[in-house]
Amino acid sequence: MSGLVVRGLVKQYPEFTLYLDCEVPQGSLTTLLGPSGCGKSTALSVITGIEDQQQGSIILAGRDISHVPPWDRNIGLVFQDYALFPHMSAGANIAYGLHVRSVSRQEIKRTVAHLLELIGLEGYEHRRINELSGGEQQRIALARALAPKPDLLLLDEPLSALDAKLRVRLRTEIQRIQRELGVTTIYVTHDQEEALDISDEIIVMNRGRIEQVGTPQEIYHKPQTLFCGTFIGTSSQIPEGDRVLFFRPEHVQVAPDDPRGRIFTNCLLERKRYRGFFYEYLFNWNGHQILAHGDGSLFSGASCTLAVDRKHLADLEPSGETTQSL
């Protein structure tokens, strides 16, 4: 397959080792999701070639780039802090990567105009970088990375410097542009909501290893490790023997008329939180916390029965760490 194939990659540091083995399908938008320090950035440095791996291979668009220097890998990079060139106009920034590739003047002009249109900033060629807002700068950075028609587009936490509303708007933009160009893309983020929103596929990483690879739905509904389950969304974890029972609050039936599946009796409502269109209940069952959603008709101190359908239960190994904070 084309796209990106990483095989048996090992990068060792005194305190930390990265193991990477994954495929990013041609034309897909794949997010690399994990907490800070999980190895996302290291994975990125190795793929871009800023760091050398000790073992393993990287194949991009059918070309083995394992030992190709960074500037020859044809990877477009979008940085967290944009790293735009402040002494050049927006247009010159976008055109920069085309100069090395002996592209004609006219072709450069056409590409810049096309990209500006694509990112919705027509007529911004001659704008100075410092006249642009954060969101506009990020779009110029995206256009600059896309101009040389990279085989792979890498976005390193591209929206973390922007405010929440703008983040949502821009990630939708990025997704649209990515679809339109069909460029194979890796999007690095620690924001699970962002990952669920835009990804074709999510690679969840923790402690230098891949925990799970799957569609957002698979990752959310069928977590394979406790880490994945708890890193994304909210959940309850009930130890049972040497395993852990894992389920989502939206699958918990509160005081059902006909309880089926796994039943928890005598659950004490400890707290409820108003979440807008629903309430979040925090129950105590034999010293374990169970999260559920409800209409708010119960009050603290109430005791009731909870039930979870078997198909919504996951039976996970307890060894992994959990990341959920309540």
Binding site: T48, I50, P70, W71, D72, N74, I75, G76, L77, F79, D81, A83, L84, F85, P86, H87, Y96, G97, H99, V100, R101, R144, A145, P148
Partner: peptide, 27 residues
Amino acid sequence: IDYGQMEAARSLGMPHSRAMRRIVLPQ
């Protein structure tokens, strides 16, 4: 000058010397 500037220029395919002349030195 932020090292990211050099990194950005290199990632766009610029050789070190040219990135130094065109990106780092003017700033």
